[in-house]
Structures are given as C-alpha cells and as structure tokens.
C-alpha cells in the first residue's frame, strides 16, 4: 500500500462493536432438534412429518434470502429450482439410479446450468422487469414439467423407491429423515452465513445499496450477482431432492408460480436478509398452512388477507418483532 498515515499521529483505533452472539439461531436449532422428543412425549405424530417438510422449505427460503434479502434481487421463479431438484431425483430413481452420491452431483449441475442461463438473461434487467422475467422463466420450467409425458406429465410422477446414501437408507425412518434434513439445513445456514460475511458477500451486500459505487470501485457487479444466483439455485435444488424423497411424488405443482410467491412470503414473513428469518418464516408459514387447512378447505380465504395485512401493517418480519420484544437491534 502506498497510503501512509498522515504526518500527525493518528488517534488510536476504536474497538469494534461487540458482536451479538447468535442466541436466537442456537435456540431455534435446539428447539427443532427437540421436535422428535416432543413427539414421543405427546405432540401429534404428524408434526414430525410437518416440521421435516417445513425444514425442507426453510432450505429453499434460505437460498432465496441470499439473492432476495442480501442481494436485493426479487426473484419470482425460485420454485423452478426446487422442481428441477425434485424432477432430477424422480427421473433418476425411476430409471433405477437411487444412489444420492450420483443423483446429487447431476442435480446440482442441472440447477447450476439452469440458473446460469436464465440468470444471465434476467440479470440484464432490474426492478420490476427482473420480477416478471424470473416469473416467466419459472413458468417455463412448469410447462416443461407438464410436457414430460414419459415422467407423469400433468399428473406427476410417483416414486416407488427412496434414495440411498452410500448404500444406506437414511430416508426410510422418519426420525432419521428428520435429523438428516435438520443437518442439511444447519449446514446450508452456516454456508450461506459464511458467504454473506465473505469478501464476495460484502460486494453483494454493497451492490444492493449502491451498484454504481461498487462498479466504480472496480467490481463486476453483474458477475457477482450471477454467482449468487447460481449458488442460490443449487441450494434450492438440494431442497427439491429432499422434498421428492419425503413425498415420494413429484409433480408440476412443485414449480407453480404460487409456490414461488409462497417462498417470497416465507422470506418476508421471517425478516428479509437475516437468513435465520427465512427459516423462521418457512416454519411459521407451513405450520399456519397446516392449522388453517385443518379448519376449512377454503383456508386461502383466510390466508390471503393475512398476507395483505401483514404487508400493510408490519415491518421487519418475525425477526424484527423478536428484536423489538427483546430490545435488540438485530437477531
């Protein structure tokens, strides 16, 4: 560096503000880990399946938060990646390949290619055009799935086997499945958190607020966003793999644009950009859906207005609410 301290002695460096310990995050994961125990103690048994499903969507919501919350890119086609992950799994299992060590690399590569191609086109625009284009690409994936007549077409594809992992069957037992999903969720959370705190993440965060400045500083903002988009798509694909194994069924409905909208709602419900907010949002969403649909088949008549009211009258999502309750600025 050629910058030297100026001739007068510089004042001492102030200490960095103390970092919050991630109390909420640890509490959240401990609470999740206790769910199977709670089921043996009397929580209704279907909660084990429900929370597993919620954690699978939490992985997808977390990946969406990386581009939507951290990168400021409102993608309305994120369900496509869940769908690609689920269909890649379903098709390979149908063709007799159940080994996850083979399925996963293929699936991640498929998601990466789809993300790279659609991302390269959509990232040429911003704002509302970006929302519309990601929505349109999501819809393209939906119709493509419908057209796969060899793999169920419109009706979807039933899987008669689950994946194996290095010969073992981690998905055969519901409790084991639960902990596998929890581990994957924890891994993805740590991974995304590390990405956000890295040099790469700093550029992504900075570009959300002032892309011109970041470009003038010497970064290729478009490339950074594209990389984030690809990583995000791959993580969502992983959740598709888990979802296919849980439901043992794959259908175009996995890719519907309503699903993409629900993912956005999960992220906003939890608190945009906080990462663990997306997890919280996904849990709250799926549990609310489960409870409401138990009350009436017309649960969307209740749920729709809840979304509207939530948008109109709250700010900062559940994480912001928790922060206000405990008097802290962030979680």
């Amino acid at each position: 560096m050629t910058v030297e301290a100026s001739t007068q002695a510089a004042p001492p460096r102030p200490a960095a503000p103390a970092r919050h310990r991630p109390v909420f995050v640890i509490a959240l994961f401990l609470a999740l880990a206790a769910v199977p125990l709670a089921v043996t103690l009397g929580l209704p048994a279907h909660w084990l399946t429900l929370v597993t499903r919620a954690m699978i969507f939490a992985i997808a919501a977390l990946s969406l938060d990386l581009i939507l919350g951290v990168g400021g890119l409102v993608s309305f086609g994120h369900a496509a990646f869940i769908g690609i992950g689920a269909y890649a799994t379903g098709i390979m299992i149908t063709e007799g390949q159940t080994e996850a060590l083979i399925i996963l690399p293929v699936l991640l590569a498929a998601c990466a290619v789809f993300a790279a191609v659609t991302g390269a086109v959509s990232l040429r625009t911003r704002g509302v055009a970006f929302i519309m284009i990601t929505l349109a690409f999501g819809q393209m994936a939906y119709f493509l799935a419908q057209a796969l007549s060899a793999y169920g077409g419109d009706d979807g594809l039933t899987l008669y086997e689950q994946s194996t992992l290095a010969g073992f069957e981690p998905f055969a037992n519901r409790t084991t499945f639960f902990y596998v999903v929890l581990a994957v969720l924890a891994f993805c959370h740590v991974l995304v958190r590390a990405l956000v705190a890295s040099r790469f993440g700093r550029v992504l965060r900075a570009a959300r607020e002032n892309a011109t400045r970041v470009t003038m500083t010497g970064f290729d903002v478009g490339r950074v966003r594209l990389v984030a988009y690809v990583i995000s798509g791959m993580i969502a694909g992983l959740s598709g793999f888990l979802l296919a194994n849980q439901t043992e069924f794959v259908s175009p409905a996995f890719i519907s644009w309503q699903r993409s909208g629900e993912l956005i709602f999960m992220v906003v419900l939890g608190g945009v950009g906080s990462l663990h907010g997306a997890i919280l949002g996904a849990l709250a969403f799926l549990i609310a859906e489960d409870v409401l649909s138990g009350l009436t088949e017309h649960w969307k008549v209740i749920f729709g207005p809840m979304i509207v009211l939530f948008v109109l009258f709250t700010r900062g999502g559940l994480v912001g609410l928790l922060g206000r309750l405990t008097g802290r600025r962030d979680g």
Partner: peptide, 23 residues
C-alpha cells in the same frame, strides 16, 4: 471501515473469496 475495505478488496489477490470472513 467496511466501505474502505471494499476498495482494498477490489485490488486484493482474491477480490471475491467466497468463504473466509471479510470483516
């Protein structure tokens, strides 16, 4: 500090390192 470090980063050997903590 982060604003300025962003500028340093642009000229660093790995300006977009993916996992190491930047702060």
């Amino acid at each position: 500090l982060e604003n300025v470090a962003l500028g340093v980063q642009a000229r660093a050997a790995h300006p977009l390192a993916l996992l190491r903590n930047a702060a």
